[in-house]
């Protein structure tokens, strides 16, 4: 089991670094899919099958496919992107480095991390998740509907095309003719 954990952890870290480091956005997305799959593996190791399944279906399946579609549709699948100035890159490196230093120092100091509670192998099972969600965390569960509703309203508000609105100047050719017709 321990060997499996280390293999999965190595895959997670390497793929996460690839997400940030890859020059081509498509490679980044593929690396992110690998990262999510390895994290789902971690969930299985913790006996949280439900979480692992949801993670694969929602993140790896739906969201990453959406990412790929956006990249393809907007034609972003070319390496590069805007160049950052040297000062900006330096500032980012210093800020990120400071946070990394803090985290590294904390991990070094806290090698003997003692968990606050022992591990309960039943905690991630769907039965337990359901019970907690509909008893102890009922309010957060219910109130997240407000969050989703405002996200839906926002999408409609920002993306809806009105009849009297001028056609998008970026759309040309037959597509434009079809839309204005």
């Amino acid at each position: 089991m321990a060997a499996l954990f280390y293999i999965l952890a190595a895959i997670s870290v390497i793929s996460a670094l690839t997400v940030v480091g890859a020059r081509n956005p498509v490679n980044s997305v593929i690396a992110l899919v690998v990262c999510f799959l390895s994290i789902a593996g971690h969930y299985v190791l913790l006996n949280a099958q439900f979480l692992a399944m949801v993670h694969v279906i929602v993140y790896t399946g739906a969201i990453m496919v959406l990412f790929l579609f956006v990249i393809m549709l907007l034609n972003l699948n070319k390496p590069g992107g805007p160049r950052k100035s040297l000062a900006m890159r330096l500032a980012a490196a210093v800020a990120g480095g400071l946070l990394f230093l803090t985290l590294a120092a904390a991990v070094r100091q806290g090698v003997a991390i003692t968990p606050a509670a022992g591990f309960d192998p039943g905690v991630g099972l769907v039965r337990h998740v359901g019970q907690v969600l509909f008893t102890e965390f009922l309010l957060p569960f219910e109130v997240s509907s407000v969050l989703f509703l405002s996200a839906i309203v926002g999408v409609v508000m920002l993306a809806k095309k009105d009849k009297d609105e001028a056609p998008d100047p970026h759309i040309t050719g037959p597509e434009r003719a079809r839309r204005t017709a």
């Binding site: 969050l147 405002s150 996200a151 309203v153 920002l158």
Partner: peptide, 8 residues
């Protein structure tokens, strides 16, 4: 819930 409507 506070932030998402604000972004929009």
């Amino acid at each position: 819930i506070l932030s998402i409507p604000l972004y929009i």
